[in-house]
């Protein structure tokens, strides 16, 4: 099993389909890319340190908008994943597809939606 699991993400009431996808993604990652499994700690670090260059270390916003869960809660995970992978043309949000996998982007969008409120 990959290093991260549901316990790491925390319980949520709205995770049925995305959760299934995520589980599938984990299985795929685990079986097909055994040497390259999702590493929750590394991805969390990416979110806070590198996304944080624009969105703030604590994700409260900066040049880029606030990414805390209460701000994002009306977005579907799929929408966030798409924004992470492909950016928002005409804005400073870059596409991260050259740097991270779809599974990693999905992990990040779930992480953002399920962070503990501060």
């Amino acid at each position: 099993m990959a290093k991260f699991g549901h316990a790491n993400i925390g319980p949520s009431s709205k995770r049925s389909l995305p959760s299934a996808l995520l589980t599938l993604a984990v299985l795929v990652a685990t079986s097909a890319l055994a040497a390259d499994v999702l590493d929750g700690d590394t991805l969390k670090r990416l979110v806070h340190q590198d996304c944080g260059s624009c969105h703030g270390l604590s994700l409260k916003g900066g040049l880029g908008p606030d990414l805390r869960s209460k701000t994002l809660e009306h977005y579907d995970a799929e929408v966030l994943t798409g924004v992470i992978l492909d950016g928002i043309p005409g804005t400073a949000m870059p596409p991260w597809r050259p740097l991270i996998s779809e599974e990693e982007a999905e992990w990040i969008s779930h992480y953002l939606l399920e962070q503990e409120a501060e």
């Binding site: 590198d50 260059s53 624009c54 040049l63 950016g87 043309p89 400073a92 870059p94 596409p95 050259p98 740097l99």
Partner: peptide
């Protein structure tokens, strides 16, 4: 083709 910028 606008180059993505990962850090200003």
């Amino acid at each position: 083709e606008e180059m993505p910028v990962y850090k200003m």
